[in-house]
């Protein structure tokens, strides 16, 4: 694992509320970092990842309030929870640099299925990871912490 992946993992953990173990367990760490690298201006991603080393909640709050880094940080949360890239839009690009392929999109079929939203809902991705006949009639389990 490269330092850059470690930085991304630490930042992602702060942003999502899921630990490194859970995030690695999605199998999507490398794909999400690659998706960001493919889209974002390199200097923006570098600047954001640098915060992975020291980001406490106060620092994360500051990142989210930043007009350049905030929208990207929010998109990283959506990557992990939903497996999607959500278009940042023309005004962000105009101010902060060009984005490649800035369209609403699911990163991949695997990313859809790996979304943490299903975990936190105590459920499963619709259309995948079937729970078995009749499982839906049982009381929901507690959301794993």
């Amino acid at each position: 694992m490269t330092d850059r992946s470690e930085q991304f993992l630490r930042l992602s953990s702060r942003l999502t509320g899921f630990g490194a173990f859970d995030l690695r367990g999605t199998g999507m760490l490398a794909d999400y970092l690659a998706a960001l690298e493919a889209r974002l201006p390199a200097n923006v991603l570098d600047e954001l990842l640098a915060h992975g080393d020291d980001a406490d909640d106060q620092a994360i709050g500051a990142i989210l309030a930043d007009p350049k880094l905030g929208p990207v940080a929010r998109n990283i949360i959506l990557l992990w929870y939903c497996g999607t890239w959500n278009a940042l839009g023309a005004s962000w690009s105009a101010a902060c640099g060009a984005i490649a392929d800035d369209k609403n999109a699911v990163i991949s079929a695997a990313a859809y299925q790996a979304g943490l939203q299903w975990t936190v809902a105590g459920a499963h991705p619709a259309g995948a990871a079937q729970q078995g006949f009749g499982a839906w009639s049982l009381a929901p389990g507690a959301s794993p912490q």
């Binding site: 999502t16 509320g17 899921f18 709050g61 949360i77 939203q117 936190v120 105590g122």
Partner: peptide
């Protein structure tokens, strides 16, 4: 709404379920 980290996770666990 500005939620992130553990507070985001807790809020979603409360509403989605």
């Amino acid at each position: 709404q500005g939620l992130f980290g553990g507070r985001l996770r807790d809020a979603l666990a409360t509403t989605l379920t």
